[in-house]
Design a protein around this nucleic acid. Structure first.
Lengths: 138, 138
DNA sequence: CCGGATCCGTTTCGATACTG
DNA sequence: CAGTATCGAAACGGATCCGG
């Protein structure tokens, strides 16, 4: 997930995260994990945006290499794989919520359900905790 | 800044922001604006990552079209342009800080100065306010 | 000098077809 | 179901040129 070219990163506080955040499809997969409850390859594939199979495979493996998700065999089907967020991945929830809030504020007609946004504004910590709990017990 | 292909975005709370966030160079420019105090074309050009002139021009115009930055003539030189964050752009500060915190937590050896990260953890609101103030009076 | 625009060779991405 | 292989399209990097 890191850049191949080892540019100096001196005082830059966010460069590290850029390879992960600076990619549309990666972000989309994380969204599906966090907000959509998706866990299987086939589910990610069916998102509205229409990710290609090779791209999905690539991003999943990069997310795994970055320690953000974990791949395991679905105990219920034995033939499917399950992708779940690691602790590092769960720590992205606040970031994703920040993104939701920003989008909702500056482009209200698109995006997040009003009720959810209001709750997010009033009880950020509570929303975070709830999402984490839901994801953790998955 | 929006996608050309108008995909359905139904319940997706963050799709709107993806075109902006899902691009390495755009994010890098915003970083330079928020944390590095850069304001001129030439300054962005000189970042460690080495953005090309055509790419930079493209991202700046897209950021302007998205209402995140504003372009004006430098009153001090009359030949330079100044790029500053709009209100919408300033509202990205919390998001960027979330990113910093995440990177710092999960990849400590790279990235943000320790002291800054600690202050961020202890007084998030204060850090946000301070950065906004610094950027606003610029 | 500053802020781009343009052209071009190279790399990377991604849609589709195909496979274990 | 979960991916690879292929191949055309798009993005990128670098050099160069140009208007103010």
């Amino acid at each position: 997930m890191r850049t191949t070219k080892p540019t100096r990163r001196s005082d830059c506080p966010i460069c590290y995260s850029l390879d992960f955040l600076g990619d549309k499809w990666t972000l989309l997969v994380v969204r599906d994990l966090v907000f959509m409850g998706k866990r299987h390859y086939g589910e990610f594939l069916k998102s509205d945006e229409g990710i290609a199979t090779n791209i999905l495979a690539d991003r999943l493996s990069k997310l795994e290499a970055a320690g953000i998700i974990r791949k395991s065999v679905d105990p219920e089907s034995r033939v499917k794989n399950v992708y779940t967020l690691t602790e590092k991945g769960l720590d992205l929830v606040p970031l994703m919520l920040e993104l939701v809030a920003w989008g909702a504020k500056h482009d209200p007609q698109t995006g997040a359900p009003k009720a959810f946004v209001r709750r997010l504004r009033e009880d950020r910590a509570g929303v975070i905790k709830e999402i984490r709990k839901r994801l953790a017990k998955g």
